[in-house]
């Protein structure tokens, strides 16, 4: 039996921003349990001393020159936007607050310049 509960899946769906019905949550919980049970053996295989590999090839220090390349016009940028207004992407009301680098308050007036 898997340790993943329906509440866990509900939380994961919230993190992933995927709305799910009760039936979907049920199904996902059981499927996820089966899959996780089948993959969790990976924990037994590698000891402390094995370094993780995040990139298949060991490249380092790939940098770009600080020179301006191609830029979209506002029309190009917004060409496939589901909704827009005043050359900006339009979204419905935001309930949550952003994070970290997001100054939700302060330099907002810049937008009007």
């Amino acid at each position: 039996m898997s340790e993943i509960s329906r509440a866990d899946v509900e939380h994961l769906a919230t993190l992933a921003h995927i709305a799910m019905t009760d039936a979907e949550l049920e199904k996902m919980t059981s499927e996820l349990g089966v899959i996780v049970d089948s993959v969790k053996r990976v924990q037994e295989a590698a000891g402390e001393d094995v370094p993780p590999t995040s990139h298949p090839l060991p490249l380092t220090n790939v940098f770009r020159e600080d020179t301006v390349g191609h830029v979209f016009t506002a029309e190009e940028a917004l060409a496939s936007a589901p909704d827009s207004q005043d050359s900006r992407f339009k979204v419905p009301a935001i309930l949550s607050e952003g994070d970290d680098a997001v100054p939700s308050g302060a330099p907002q007036e810049e937008g009007e310049r």
Partner: peptide, 15 residues
């Protein structure tokens, strides 16, 4: 650590 971390270690072993 248990999942993504362990899997990346498997990757090292496979290499």
């Amino acid at each position: 650590d248990a999942y993504y971390g362990s899997a990346q270690k498997i990757r090292t072993l496979i290499q």
